[in-house]
Amino acid sequence: MRFDWWTLALQTVNFAVLVWLMQRFLYTPVLRMLDARHAEIEMQYADARAADAKAKELLAAVQAERTGIVNEREIALQAATAQAEGLARERRALADREAAALLDGARKTLAVERDKALAEARKLCLDLGVAFAGRLLAEAPAKLRTEAWLERIEQYLAALPRTEIEALARQLEDGSVLEVVTALPLALETAETWRTRLHRSLGDLIAIAFDVDPGLVAGAELHFPSAVLRFSWQSALATARAEVDAP
Rank of each mutant, 00 (worst) to 15 (best):
A55W: 00
K56H: 11
K56P: 00
L59S: 03
L59R: 09
A60D: 07
A60K: 15
A61W: 05
A61I: 10
Q63M: 10
E65K: 11
R66Q: 05
T67Q: 12
T67W: 08
G68A: 14
G68M: 11
I69C: 10
E72I: 07
E72W: 15
E74I: 12
E74Q: 09
I75S: 02
I75D: 03
I75G: 01
I75N: 02
A76S: 01
L77H: 07
A79E: 12
A82R: 14
A82Q: 13
A82G: 07
A82L: 14
A84L: 07
L87C: 01
L87D: 10
A88S: 06
E90N: 06
E90P: 00
R92T: 04
A93T: 04
A93Y: 04
L94W: 12
A95F: 11
A95L: 11
D96L: 15
D96I: 12
E98K: 13
A100K: 15
A101M: 15
L102I: 05
L102N: 03
L102E: 07
L102Q: 08
L102K: 12
L103R: 14
L103E: 03
D104C: 01
R107H: 13
K108H: 09
K108N: 03
T109S: 06
L110I: 01
A111F: 10
A111G: 06
E113D: 02
E113C: 04
R114H: 08
D115A: 13
D115M: 11
K116I: 02
K116P: 00
L118H: 01
L118K: 06
A119H: 07
A119S: 07
E120R: 15
R122A: 07
K123G: 01
K123I: 00
L124F: 05
C125N: 09
D127M: 07
D127L: 07
L128R: 13
L128N: 09
G129A: 10
V130T: 05
F132W: 12
G134T: 13
G134C: 03
R135H: 11
R135K: 13
L136N: 10
L136E: 02
L137G: 06
A138S: 15
A138Y: 08
E139A: 14
E139I: 06
A140C: 05
A140D: 07
A140N: 04
K143P: 00
K143Q: 11
L144Y: 09
L144S: 10
E147W: 10
E147C: 01
W149C: 05
W149L: 03
L150R: 15
E151M: 12
E151Y: 08
R152G: 01
R152Y: 10
E154H: 04
Q155P: 00
Q155D: 05
Q155A: 08
Y156D: 02
Y156G: 01
Y156C: 03
L157Q: 08
L157E: 01
L160I: 06
P161Q: 09
R162I: 06
E164C: 02
E164K: 15
I165R: 15
E166D: 08
E166H: 14
A167W: 14
L168Q: 02
L168M: 10
L168H: 10
A169T: 06
A169P: 05
A169I: 00
E173D: 08
E173I: 12
D174M: 04
G175N: 06
G175T: 04
S176F: 07
V177T: 14
L178C: 04
L178R: 10
E179T: 14
E179I: 13
E179R: 15
E179K: 14
V180E: 02
